[in-house]
Design a protein around this nucleic acid. Structure first.
Ligand code: MN
Ligand code: MN
Ligand code: ZN
Ligand code: ZN
Lengths: 139, 139
DNA sequence: GGGCTAATTGAAAACAGTTTTCAGTGTGAT
DNA sequence: ATCACACTGAAAACTGTTTTCAATTAGCCC
């Protein structure tokens, strides 16, 4: 779980100013247990700072992505939502019902990657994995 | 590799008409060795049937996706491109340089899925995997 | 506690990709 | 050849995102 203060710290560490609208977005992201679209984040952020503009939400999301604090998640329809991400390499499991998102780290693909590399001749550098299912609440 | 005629067959089998613009799109998709955006497909399709409209490209891509003949692929910037997909469950390896795409089928994730399921409590139903790297030509 | 300045903001406009509309066209069945 | 209706494409409408720019504000220095 991300804490608002750790996000704030990441911001100031990089020399970004901690403004009211940014705080509002950080608060939303820190509390989010699911992937949220910029518009959804905007709606929630306005509860903390009513004047928050959608543009600032986009800009703040960019910064958060830069810090590695959020990641885009892919849905059937595209990848228009962002989920909180802890430091380091990880992937997401997403509930198809309520969109709750949790991370997992263990992704032992070494064997698979080796096989694919051998069969395709590609040198594989990155991978991208997402799991979909039902969260404990929704099953 | 997809053949134009097998795509055509899939179309007629479903009662869709085989019109000139659709043929043009099928031809492009069958020949594509890389993920292509609707706009790119449009440009190429016009070489086969100059009057082809972009709208029809979108519509034909929808039909092809319905048939399982193409799949959206995800790039860093989003998922705006489509790659040929053979029947059945498979994933893509994408060249970061030239965007060449090949499929692979062996994805033995059973062990991984079981672990994640146990640790997160989610019931996992689907997965999504994409590999990025350098194709034989580009390395 | 004031100022100072560059970073930041948000309304509006611009932009890009996609979808809808609709009158006209072309396919495939008969 | 005829015909019904699926299909087409130009234009308009929409949606999500980015740019612009004058006004505001956070954080720093006194
Ligand atoms: Mn991994
Ligand atoms: Mn698989
Ligand atoms: Zn759920
Ligand atoms: Zn390549």
């Amino acid at each position: 779980m991300l804490s608002e203060s750790s996000l704030a710290q990441a911001f100031t560490a990089r020399g970004y100013k901690l403004t009211r609208p940014r705080r509002a977005v950080l608060k939303v992201v820190a509390q989010a247990g699911a992937g949220l679209s910029p518009a959804q984040i905007h709606a929630r952020a306005k509860k903390f700072h009513p004047h928050t503009g959608l543009v600032t939400v986009y800009r703040t999301l960019d910064l958060l992505a830069e810090c590695g604090a959020v990641r885009r998640v892919h849905g059937e329809d595209g990848c228009h939502s962002y989920a909180p991400a802890s430091a380091g390499h990880a992937h997401h499991v997403i509930c198809g019902q309520c969109h709750a998102v949790v991370e997992f780290e263990e992704c032992d693909l070494a064997e698979l990657l080796k096989t694919v590399q051998r069969r395709t001749g590609y040198k594989i550098q990155e991978h991208w994995l997402e799991l979909f299912g039902l969260c404990p609440n929704c099953r």
